[in-house]
């Protein structure tokens, strides 16, 4: 009888330990999902931050880079810049490539955080036009190119994050209901 009582007690302890481990596993999974969701929410604003930075850079360019030496001084120090026509051709090529790349990433639904580099590219174009003394004529072209690419990137990042957040929320709901993660979806059918 005693032995039976001991074995029952041990079984109860085992059951309690198993239940506690399951609860721990569930809370770990829940915390992981919550962390992922918080990270996605932060990441979804990345495009807007890049757009804000670009607008600040554009404002500086609009004021004519007053803190820089004059284009003549820069040309004297660094040599002749490319012609405005050549810079414009590169700008068109860049805009076209960046749009195609962004649309491709949007279609593939890949996680990629290339927003801030476009601010650098746009700033580079502003500087090249400034040194070539053709910023006044081409300012709106660079602004339009940067704004378009960054808006598209923001939209791509935002839609990616929205989709991922929806998926994570579904996983969280499933976890709350069943105490385990849902089985992997068959993405491979379509991807």
């Amino acid at each position: 009888m005693k032995a039976d009582g001991c074995s029952m007690e041990a079984a109860g302890k085992d059951k309690m330990a198993t239940g506690s481990a399951a609860r721990d596993a569930k809370s770990v999974l829940r915390q992981g999902l919550m962390d992922d969701m918080a990270r996605l929410r932060r990441f979804s604003n990345r495009g807007l931050f890049a757009l804000s930075l670009f607008i600040i850079a554009s404002t500086v360019a609009w004021r004519g880079f007053t803190f820089l030496p004059t284009p003549q001084q820069l040309v004297a120090a660094m040599g002749t810049p490319p012609t405005p026509f050549m810079i414009s051709m590169v700008l068109v090529l860049y805009t076209f490539s960046a749009i195609i790349l962004s649309l491709s990433r949007m279609m593939a639904g890949v996680y990629h955080k290339s927003s801030f580099c476009h601010v650098g590219y746009a700033l580079g174009f502003y500087l090249f036009y400034y040194v070539a003394d053709a910023l006044a004529d081409n300012y709106w072209a660079v602004f339009g190119a940067g704004f378009t690419v960054l808006c598209l990137e923001s939209y791509r990042i935002w839609t990616f994050c929205s989709d991922q957040l929806g998926r994570k929320q579904e996983q969280l709901d499933f976890l709350e209901r069943n105490g385990r993660m849902p089985p992997e979806e068959e993405d491979s059918l379509y991807s």
Binding site: V92, I99, N138, W140, A141, A145, C151
Partner: peptide, 16 residues
């Protein structure tokens, strides 16, 4: 976004 932006860029560059 894409059509409007690219058209604006091309318009400004062509006009310049």
């Amino acid at each position: 976004i894409v059509v409007t932006g690219f058209l604006v860029v091309c318009f400004v560059l062509l006009y310049a």
